[in-house]
């Protein structure tokens, strides 16, 4: 059974990556935070009595399910928005969303110019990598982040994703190749 201290340590270790994972999926700061909050609460309320070693896989599964729930809710909300926009002739909301997204993808940090060249290059690489990750198919991104960023093994990733280990390997390989190709196309060699 995980003690409060163990759960605290686990969440503290995983929360930032969880936020970024959610952000890659939903491209919105507030929504990403909401998703992480839901996932943390679900883990604590439903699985807080589990051994600490089970927490990483459980949390990833909850996080991915919460992201999927968000997609589902968004789809329903977008459907109604489309219906009302069609009736009312106002479609500004989606445009604003797109503009925000483009702004975010551009988002040149003012501090960049003060950074040395290496740090700037690193920051640009990170920006490109984040953008490319966000563009990946959801399942590939899930597999890649869980397997490599969270360090789950193939079996744990497969369990968290609800698919076979073979599928995990395929998703991971495709994601890695796609990211490497995108970076190479922008002149970045890892």
């Amino acid at each position: 059974m995980a003690t409060p201290r163990e759960l605290d340590a686990f969440l503290a270790n995983v929360e930032r990556r969880a936020y970024k994972t959610a952000w890659f999926a939903v491209h919105n700061e507030e929504n990403a935070l909401d998703i992480v909050q839901d996932a943390m609460l679900k883990l604590a309320e439903s699985y807080g009595d589990r051994p600490p070693e089970e927490l990483p896989a459980l949390f990833q599964r909850i996080l991915q399910n919460t992201i999927r729930d968000f997609y589902r809710r968004s789809k329903v909300r977008n459907l109604w928005t489309t219906v009302f926009s069609a009736l009312g002739g106002q479609g500004d909301t989606d445009d604003e969303g797109d503009l925000d997204r483009i702004e975010r993808l551009r988002d040149p940090n003012s501090e960049q110019q003060e950074q040395p060249d290496a740090a700037l290059e690193q920051r640009q690489m990170l920006q490109i990598l984040e953008n490319e990750l966000a563009k990946l198919p959801a399942r590939q991104r899930e597999a890649f982040l869980m397997r490599y960023w969270e360090g789950l093994d193939t079996a744990e990733t497969a369990e968290a994703m609800g698919c076979s280990q073979g599928s995990v390997k395929t998703h991971c390989s495709r994601a890695t190749q796609a990211l490497a190709a995108a970076l190479k196309a922008k002149g970045i060699q890892l």
Partner: peptide, 21 residues
Amino acid sequence: ITARLAQMREQALAHQKQWQS
């Protein structure tokens, strides 16, 4: 964002199943 994350963590810990159990 890090402050919000820490706040969420606190909130989650307050709801840990272990104590209800």
